[in-house]
């Protein structure tokens, strides 16, 4: 597909997605759709580092939580406008990403060692948030409800849907840029074989660190969205392992390192979540089904669900979709 056609298709899909809430039957359905888009966005933030650069993280929640806390504390304790706080949160996530990247990559941690160290960072942040004064420990922070657009709070869930859509569109643009840019080519080389990438003169340390910074800024922006939607943050919401797993899961199921993988993964998991919830109360069943899907994907579709479309479309294999 040439660039103009891609932009046209993308634009049409965006308009359709924008109009979707008008045909959805209920606020509940709009909410479900908003959370699918939001999960796709978070998945994309993971995918930038985990998929495109192959730096698998088990603790991406460290950025998500940092964003959620940053904007919430700035707002509640310092009286900042949450829109401004949102930008500050993204910056904070970017800084944490650069810092963790600089430490971990300078120490030469790769593969599962990197994954474990991110998990450790997330746990340390959770414990700190649980015990620090300015995060109000385990009590968490409540954002006073005052639904006005200027406060980044909305009564009608359709606004969160549109914001999630905008975030997702932005993240898809970042991913599409990575597919075509020099920086993206560096990351692909690093993912495929770090030593060979270095031998070709790619500054591996720099590229990986910057990549984690971008990824962290995106996940942190997601944290603010989450906090503004539920008007509450506590250590287990912000830094709990569940969100880390969710981000990783939607990317892996949809197709890590692809532009649309996280969206496909989020749609499938969101759909499965809704169906299982209608069968059984509580969380248990959906997790069982998630696990089964992940096992099946890893066993039979290592390129993710999107790999199926790519192959059928006669395109080159998986990663290219």
């Amino acid at each position: 597909m040439n660039a103009r056609r891609i932009v046209a298709v993308f634009g049409a899909a965006l308009v359709a997605a924008f109009a979707l809430p008008f045909v959805l039957p209920s606020n509940y359905a709009v909410n479900v759709a908003a959370m699918i888009l939001f999960t796709a966005f978070l998945g994309q933030s993971w995918n930038i580092a985990g998929g495109f650069a192959g730096q698998t993280s088990f603790g991406h929640v460290v950025f998500f939580g940092t964003g959620a806390y940053a904007s919430t504390i700035l707002q509640v304790a310092w009286g900042w406008n949450p829109w401004l706080g949102w930008i500050a949160a993204a910056l904070a996530g970017g800084v944490v990403g650069l810092a963790i990247g600089a430490l971990a990559f300078r120490a030469g941690l790769r593969g599962s060692y990197f994954a474990l160290v991110t998990l450790a960072f997330a746990e340390v942040f959770r414990i700190l948030a649980n015990s620090a004064e300015f995060t109000r420990g385990g009590l968490g922070i409540l954002i006073p409800s005052d639904p006005r657009a200027a406060n980044l709070q909305f009564k009608d869930p359709v606004w969160f849907y549109w914001i999630a859509l905008a975030l997702l569109a932005l993240s898809l643009a970042v991913a599409a840029w990575l597919k075509r840019s020099r920086f993206g080519a560096q990351l692909a080389a690093i993912r495929e074989n770090e030593d060979a990438a270095r031998a070709l003169g790619i500054d591996v340390f720099r590229a990986k660190t910057i990549c984690l910074g971008i990824s962290g800024a995106m996940a942190a922006a997601g944290g603010t969205f989450y906090a503004q939607k539920y008007l509450y943050v506590d250590p287990s919401i912000a830094y709990g392992v569940e969100k880390s797993v969710e981000m990783l899961l939607v990317s892996m199921i949809g197709g890590a390192g692809t532009v649309f993988g996280p969206l496909v993964g989020a749609a499938v998991l969101g759909g499965v979540g809704e169906i299982t919830r209608s069968f059984a109360a509580g969380q248990g069943l959906s997790l069982v089904v998630y696990g089964a899907i992940l096992v099946a994907i890893v066993a039979w579709l290592p390129d993710g669900l999107i790999g199926v479309f790519a192959r059928r479309g006669g395109a080159r294999r998986g990663r290219d979709a």
Binding site: Q186, A189, N193, D195, A197, L200, I202, G318
Partner: peptide, 18 residues
């Protein structure tokens, strides 16, 4: 040490990266 999931052409093109 080739880039296994990239095409032969992409591998070569990455050679002229720097």
């Amino acid at each position: 040490r080739v880039f296994p999931n990239l095409s032969v052409r992409e591998n070569l093109e990455l050679g002229s990266y720097r």
